[in-house]
């Protein structure tokens, strides 16, 4: 094998691919742009069905940031159930509105929650921690 190619591969940083699931345009843009600037590879989904399509299309996703409502809105809870079924080892950071339901959902292995409104740097650090734990 070409030693240069081998070297390049071995020093290549981890892709740190995050799937951001957020239905609000401004919020999705803000967090996605921040994460790209800090070195993440970001895939943006506006709802659960888009997120599932992205997971099927790109199996190399390292972590999910799920900011769609788990108690209200566009089926965040169903989405988390499907992710747990299809990719049980895929870590998920849930942006929580502080409800009891969110605490229960986050209280499983490979999951964590972050309270809304979240601070970007906290999201970044929590995502890195979830990836590193994997």
């Amino acid at each position: 094998m070409d030693p240069l190619v081998t070297k390049e591969r071995s020093t290549e940083p981890r892709r740190n691919a995050v799937l951001v699931v957020e239905d609000d345009f401004l919020a999705r843009w803000g967090v996605s742009e921040y994460l790209r600037e800090t070195g993440f590879y970001v895939i943006e989904a506006i709802n659960a069905s888009e997120a599932l399509a992205a997971i099927h299309a790109d199996p190399a996703i390292d972590v999910i940031f799920c900011a769609i409502g788990t108690t209200t809105g566009v089926g965040g809870e169903d989405f988390l159930r499907l992710v747990a079924k299809e990719r049980p080892s895929l870590p998920v950071l849930i942006a929580s509105d502080g409800s009891h339901r969110d605490r229960t959902l986050a209280n499983t292995p490979r999951r964590a929650k972050i309270d809304k409104p979240y601070v970007m740097i906290d999201v970044e650090q929590r995502l890195r921690a979830l990836i590193a734990a994997g």
């Binding site: 790209r36 895939i43 943006e44 989904a45 506006i46 888009e50 399509a53 992205a54 299309a57 790109d58």
Partner: peptide
């Protein structure tokens, strides 16, 4: 369509 959007957006980036 996310599968079109993600590929195109990434390419342009």
């Amino acid at each position: 369509e996310i599968l079109i959007r993600m590929v195109l957006a990434q390419y342009l980036r």
